[in-house]
Design a binder for these strands. Structure first.
Length: 706
DNA sequence: CGCACTAGACTTTTT
DNA sequence: GTCTAGTGCG
């Protein structure tokens, strides 16, 4: 029996209503994951459905893995056989089996990341002499694939896009590549053009569950419709307050569309929040209520005793840093673990500053986002070698590594080879034989290396393939060591390769077959850095990446206009989505929330003064504790005393021979030890351990540097 | 071909 | 402030 005793009535209803089309509207922290996993177990245990015939789609791989983990605790299953994944991973799994009917030459298509796409588009632009910005074109291609239509006002851009798009798609198909959007599109295309294939999957999935439904795009919605077509058991969970992926084609209106497409659908609302204190929830609500177009709903909190969120208007980045570290230390002193703490920010570029801070302070941390493991140069290089070892046709991989490490094969030779290969309709690798240029011998030498490795492959275990590549190419010596700026970088890159090696070793290799390695590589290319296991460390992350997660203590950093909401969002008048991002950020916190807006910050290397985020101004004043205001209140009386003291003393000689900088520790005769927070003209702003912030004259003899 | 140097862009957010 | 694409020389 599946235990339902720890569910509330609405949750129970969501779990036990198994038949038909069902939509669950669930607020933040309402126990969505619990409902999804329990429902999975319930359908399998109570209805007797095979767990391998239930499809569950989540938003990230991490969420999928966690769900598998939880399911396997409730019922006896082989996790690897479950259909629990992201839309993208699901599509890879289907396409890997079925893509041949779409005319691809090898079921091990290569999955392109954004960088690969960029370099292909850039190649085509050069070939065709297109003048538009590559980044813009790249966005348009993705947009077009996501929405199926596009309207470009600029004539030049429109023409460029038109001549690019077909060439791009053709190139991808020729080199057996799919980009992220293709994974979805080709799967829909497959199902639409091959009903017999669709039938297999419609029959297979008796029950379908979709998480984060508010962030599905048009294609994903279409996929849902196709798959549920036979059994009509489609269960979607969403929250329109948390829709934050419109830039990627997500359409909140899918929620609407659902109610239109399924006239007999059933709606279940989960409005009880189990995560945050009332104080935090009130604050979140006071922000989101400024969105006019939101379906209003009420989140009830369990009336947990809690503390008010804390707001700090920091002087500058340095002061912000100090505040964060102080708080982290005191949370630790109160018994919290590092992993109970998350520092959140709007954009990835902000991570560096906080990363530097935590390194300096010896606080363990981990970062979500930034480059995924797969996107690191050395990892991609090694993987490219593996692709090329497996098949001549992987042109993209060939171009990537033919001159890595340096073999004296430059851009000109490569582009000549590409022209030649084009004329002969051969892959680059085979076209080497016909190449008549100054680099001929160098190319042949490269070919020999690859061929030598290919022969060698039959003598070694597949798990040793990375060692073989490292040995034959002398990669670590000739590539990593030659290009690294310091020992640290060498160590970092080498350790990435070893990590790749160990995850290959962990991958179940059932036979000594190259297909196995390709399985592994394909899984890898969808793996993001957040899929690594957790350690006891502070988490640094964007708001987007922590959707669905919760932390005891959350810091919302750099909470300033033009950073959050971002400059572009302001320009494009896209504040509503930013406000939802803010809502997501606030509702990650269970117990303590800290919001910090520095008055100034370095942006593009220039100090810029910043006003607090508009979202801060929208918060009800009595819902947070303003550190600066309270501090002012408490120090007023002291300032008066000081004034009297100063007036009775003769004017002092200022010491002009001083050299202070922000961060220096000083000792003051009266106030004791403090830290310089900022220097404005001939005024020092010092934060004293005993009395807080003070503005003092630069060079006053009562101040000594320590 | 490869290195050194410079001008310019750059910061949303992700599978 | 940092990364990149582009240029020019050995």
């Amino acid at each position: 029996m599946v235990d339902l005793s720890n569910l509330n009535d609405r949750q129970k209803e969501a779990v036990t209503t198994t038949e038909g089309e069902i939509m669950v509207m669930a607020g933040a922290g309402a126990g969505k994951t619990k409902v999804l996993t329990t429902r999975f177990a319930y359908i399998s245990e109570e209805l007797g459905i095979s767990p391998y015939e239930i499809l569950s789609v989540t938003f990230t791989n991490k969420a999928a893995n966690e769900m598998k983990e939880r399911i396997s605790k409730m019922i006896d299953v082989d996790q690897d056989k479950l259909w629990v994944s992201t839309f993208h991973s699901f599509c890879v799994r289907v396409l890997r089996r079925e893509i041949s009917v779409l005319g691809y030459w090898n079921r091990y298509f290569q999955i392109l990341d954004t960088d690969d796409v960029k370099s292909i588009i850039s190649d085509i632009c050069k070939e065709k002499n297109l003048r538009s910005s590559i980044k813009l074109l790249q966005n348009l291609v993705s947009k077009y694939k996501n929405t199926g239509s596009i309207d470009i006002k600029d004539t030049l851009l429109r023409n460029d896009f038109n001549s690019l798009y077909n060439a791009y798609q053709e190139k991808l198909k020729l080199s057996n590549c799919l980009d992220f959007d293709d994974l979805l599109n080709k799967t829909v295309e497959l199902f639409k053009t091959h009903p017999e294939v669709l039938k297999i999957y419609q029959n297979l999935f008796q029950y379908i569950m979709i998480d984060e439904f508010q962030d599905t795009n048009k294609i994903q919605y279409e996929l849902c419709l196709l798959l549920e077509g036979k059994h009509h058991n489609l269960f979607v969970v969403g929250d329109d307050f948390q829709s934050i992926y419109s830039f990627r084609g997500a359409e909140i209106k899918n929620i609407h569309q659902f109610t239109k497409d399924f006239k007999n659908y059933k709606l279940i609302k989960l409005e009880e929040n189990y995560r945050s204190t009332t104080q935090i929830l009130d604050l979140a609500n006071s922000v989101i209520k400024h969105n006019p177009n939101q379906i209003q709903k009420t989140l009830y909190s369990h009336d947990k005793e809690g503390k008010k969120p804390i707001y700090y208007r920091a002087l500058n980045a340095f002061d912000e840093n100090r505040f964060i570290v102080d708080k982290i230390r005191s949370l630790r002193a109160d018994g919290d673990k590092y992993s109970d703490i998350a520092l959140l920010y709007r954009s990835n570029y902000l991570s560096r500053e906080y990363e530097d801070l935590l390194v300096r302070e010896h606080i363990p941390y981990r970062i979500y986002g930034g480059l995924s493991f797969y996107e690191r140069k050395e990892v991609k290089d090694i993987i490219s070698y593996i692709y090329l070892l497996c098949d001549d046709n992987y042109d993209l991989s060939f171009s990537r590594i033919v001159n890595v490490p340096k073999r004296g094969i430059g851009a000109k030779s490569l582009s000549d080879l590409k022209d030649l290969a084009n004329d002969l309709s051969k892959p680059l690798f085979s076209a080497i034989d016909n190449f008549e240029g100054s680099a001929r011998l160098k190319l042949l030498a490269f070919k020999d290396i690859i061929n030598k490795m290919r022969k060698e492959l039959s003598n070694i275990k597949l798990t040793e393939i990375i060692d073989l590549i490292l040995k034959e190419t002398n990669y670590i010596e000739d590539e990593i060591k030659v290009n690294a700026k310091n020992d640290e970088e060498i160590e970092d890159r080498v350790s990435n390769i070893y990590e790749l090696k160990s995850s290959l070793a962990a991958h179940k290799v059932s036979s000594n077959n190259l297909d196995n390695i390709m399985d592994f590589i394909q899984d890898l290319s969808l793996m993001t850095s957040q899929d690594k296991e957790d350690t006891d460390s502070v988490l640094l992350s964007t708001y987007h990446q922590v959707k669905g997660l919760e932390f005891k203590n959350v810091f919302l950093t750099s909470f300033c206009d033009t950073i959050f909401p971002s400059q572009t969002a302001i320009l494009e008048n896209n504040i509503e989505e930013e406000r939802r991002i803010c809502y997501v950020g606030i509702t990650r916190a269970k117990d303590n929330l800290f919001i910090i807006s520095p008055m100034e910050k370095r942006i593009y290397g220039e100090i810029r003064s910043l006003s607090p985020s508009i979202f801060f101004k929208e918060m009800d004043k009595d819902l947070y504790y303003d550190v600066l205001k309270e501090r002012k209140k408490n120090t007023t009386s002291y300032t008066n005393v000081k004034k009297n003291v100063v007036s009775t003393k003769p004017k002092v000689e200022l010491n002009t021979n001083v050299d202070y900088k922000t961060g220096d520790k000083v000792n003051h005769e009266k106030f004791g030890v403090g830290t310089i927070m900022g220097i404005m003209g001939n005024t020092l702003v010092i934060n004293f351990d005993s009395v807080g912030l003070k503005k003092l004259l630069l060079g006053h003899p009562s101040i000594k540097k320590i």
